[in-house]
Design a protein around this nucleic acid. Structure first.
Lengths: 238, 238
DNA sequence: TCGGATAGGCGCCCA
DNA sequence: TGGGCGCTTATCCGA
């Protein structure tokens, strides 16, 4: 591998692919070592470095954007030294199977639907999903009461806090709902505030926690969630 | 790009790299679309697919391991159809800049220190980090009381639950500690159990929550954490 | 920049 | 396989 051409490619903002047998040491937020093996190394134009093993979705090692790179060689082996403000990584190459540089143009962002926010929006626009007579007041109230997903009154004018989860609601979700309900109680000086957890489904311990706290569950899925796979789910078009 | 050779490479368990201008549609756990741009596509031997833009550390699109791939072409454009049990993805190629296949051998796992578990271990082995007279009983108790990091008695034989966080402890960490303390109280039938949060630092709202609950904070960092960068931090050698 | 929360989170361990 | 949870989480969004 021609080191100077690689460094030049990085300087030009190219994206670099290297396929090599190497070992990797990391020190920073933690410390790690990865013994010899074949990996794919990707260095992006923003100086993010990713090291991928031949299986798994997450990189086995990585450095965040803005990393500085330097090559060295002790005759026998070449080493890629990577560093940023708080971290170091050394990649020791045994053999480079392959490498290439690419100038890539991509300014696109992912357009996505089916997030937790979309779920909040659906409930806000169709309050009957929670119950007859539910009147949402606000969405994503970041100021007075924290980060409440949907917030409103029930038919008896009792305040309701709704927490949405796009997948199985677990104990953490109940913790979170509880925290928001407490916050609203204190802020508003109320003794009674309802807590409702809206999610496709509840985990067992989340269910027992919810019961114990006197909170409620609504089986609701994010819009478009699995619409193609679960024909039984009623779909609300927005 | 020769589609049949690519499919053959995948069948052989090779790892595939493609650099191409493409657009991507996804439907499954959510629904998304990514307009035309240059990306790096990686298909691993376990049939994980990753799509990387020229910046950022996370893939912009991906399919999990065990995905099935099929190519099609309508004369003008070729399309890679990806599917697994619950998800679909279509990658529509405008132009393939480059592609290659690699047979990779890597059975190595990352050896890492500085995790939350290492922090628990450090406290378990050096109880004085919590306070004089602290006697740990168990670590990572997964059975009776949940997932408590460190669990023990103080000098007055009062039960102590310690929750470790390797970075800034936030409101969720306090929620978690609270949940464990409650669980122990109920399980053991005790009225008084101490809760201690061990972390390098506390977020503001975590601090006020902790205070309100009568819990305590210990400024402790995971072993080796930033040892190389923060010379002011007292280091305990293990 | 910091704080708080979500994520198509992923990956690991254990029942 | 599903629950529970840590992560060198990353990323987004608002103050």
């Amino acid at each position: 591998m021609d080191m100077s051409s690689l460094m030049k490619a990085l300087d030009l903002g190219n994206t670099v692919l290297i396929c090599a047998n190497c070992s990797i040491s990391y020190s920073g937020r933690a410390e790690s070592f990865l013994a010899d093996g074949d990996r794919i190394i990707m260095i992006k134009s923003d100086r993010t470095l990713l090291v991928h093993q031949p299986s798994g979705s997450t990189p086995i090692n990585y450095m965040r954007d803005g990393t500085a790179f330097r090559f060295s060689s002790d005759g026998c082996r070449s080493v890629l030294h990577c560093s940023n403000a708080k971290e170091f990584m050394n990649i020791v190459f045994n053999r480079v199977h392959f490498h290439s540089f690419h100038e890539l143009f991509d300014g696109q962002k992912l357009q996505i639907t089916g997030s937790e926010r979309d779920m909040s929006l659906m409930i806000y626009n169709t309050p009957g999903l929670i119950e007859e007579g539910f009147r949402p007041l606000s969405m994503e109230e970041h100021t007075k009461f924290g980060f409440i997903d949907v917030f409103g009154f029930d038919r008896n004018n009792v305040l309701v806090v709704v927490e949405c989860k796009r997948y199985v609601a677990d104990p953490k979700a109940v913790d979170q709902l509880k925290r928001y309900v407490e916050k609203v109680k204190v802020t508003k000086g109320l003794s009674s505030v309802r807590g409702i957890l809206a999610a496709p489904r509840l985990s067992p311990s989340a269910e027992s926690m919810l019961l114990e706290l006197g909170f409620e569950f609504r089986p609701i899925s994010p819009p478009k969630y699995f619409e193609r796979f679960d024909s039984k789910q009623k779909r609300l078009d927005f």
